[in-house]
């Protein structure tokens, strides 16, 4: 039930942001279409833990996404340097990365974070393990240190698995 209200709130926000017109007629039309959307989503039974995740610990998420942005910028610069050098100093390889998340949603977040970071693309997935194509030595090392895995586990609300290696 909480999820339905949350979905209603998010959809209202989305409508207001996209339309930007605040006349009565448009607002009534908007409320009607939002209620229709919530009803259809409830009939399709997609308002569950996966479809509308309000159970993630978003306070930790507030620290995860800036960290992810920092990693993205760092590896962007590394990959850009490697592409621009005339000798093309790349060393493509396949590595396995353990994914310690309990739910599928956490693993999806982890795999998407891996792919979003340039220099690593997740190419295959089994429960508990993700196969990654890494472009550079440095980007592969960052992933093998396991910090991203630990942080996504925290985001999911699990206990923190220890990751070896130190940050800096």
């Amino acid at each position: 039930m909480l999820r339905l209200f949350s979905l209603f709130f998010v959809l209202s926000l989305f409508w207001l942001l996209l339309s930007g017109i605040f006349s009565v007629l448009i607002l009534i039309l908007g409320i009607n279409s939002i209620i229709l959307c919530v009803f259809i989503a409830r009939r399709m039974a997609i308002v569950d833990k996966e479809g509308h995740p309000i159970h993630l610990t978003y306070l930790i998420g507030l620290s995860y996404f800036p960290w992810l942005l920092k990693e993205i910028v760092k590896s962007n610069i590394e990959v850009a340097q490697a592409i621009l050098k005339p000798s093309l100093p790349i060393s493509p390889r396949i590595i396995h990365v353990p994914a310690g998340q309990n739910e599928e949603l956490g693993q999806v977040i982890f795999a998407n974070s891996i792919t979003l970071t340039p220099g690593t693309v997740s190419i295959a997935h089994e429960p508990g393990r993700i196969t990654v194509h890494a472009l550079l030595n440095s980007t592969a090392k960052v992933l093998e240190r396991g910090e991203m895995n630990a942080r996504v586990c925290l985001l999911e609300g699990d206990t923190l698995p220890s990751f070896n290696g130190s940050e800096k």
Binding site: I72, V73, N76, V79, A80, I83, L84, L88, I90, P92, T115, L116, T117, P118, G119, V121, I123, H133, L135
Partner: peptide, 26 residues
């Protein structure tokens, strides 16, 4: 621009994906 150059320079599909993600993110 760097992503476009990477798309042309790199050698197979999986490497070119890294160039594409350069454009998508940064």
């Amino acid at each position: 621009c760097i992503g476009g150059i990477g798309l042309l320079r790199l050698r197979d599909v999986f490497e070119r994906m890294h160039g594409a993600s350069l454009i998508d993110t940064m």
